[in-house]
């Protein structure tokens, strides 16, 4: 049993497959959900999947550049969330309870 567990040490491929599954979940969420806030959360899921694969490959290839990229991705994600939520707040203030189908024409 212990030999089996020792043989099943997770390799980089496992982490990359996990990241792919998480990215797929995020993709389905963006395509299915109608609430703009939940769609934003699903975009965060996709960004985290990419961060996961960057960190796994940074360890595998012994290159700290992967972790540096994740650092910048986090900063840009924070800025993106701030701007996106600001847009959502200003839309929702004019039209309470709107979903993304109601605002598809991009006009007030």
């Amino acid at each position: 049993m212990s030999a089996l567990i020792a043989a099943a040490t997770p390799t980089t491929t496992w982490y990359l497959v996990l990241a792919a599954v998480l990215f797929g979940i995020g993709t389905v969420g963006v395509l299915v959900r109608r609430n703009p806030l939940v769609m934003f959360m699903c975009i965060e899921l996709m960004l985290n999947a990419v961060n996961l694969s960057f960190v796994a490959l940074a360890k595998r290839l012994g290159d700290i550049g992967g972790q540096t990229t994740v650092f910048f991705v986090m900063v840009v994600a924070a800025a993106e969330v701030v701007v996106g939520l600001g847009i959502i707040v200003s839309i929702m203030r004019k039209r309470p309870g709107a979903n993304v189908d109601d605002i598809s024409a991009l006009k007030g």
Binding site: T11, T12, T13, L16, V17, A20, V21, F23, G24, I25, T27, V28, L31, V32, L57, R60, L61, G62
Partner: peptide, 26 residues
Amino acid sequence: AIIVGLGVTGLVTAAVITSRDVVATR
């Protein structure tokens, strides 16, 4: 949407598994 999600996941997984020998070199 589910087909697209499964397709994205499957394609990326296939790419990862076929290239696992490439990333195996430290």
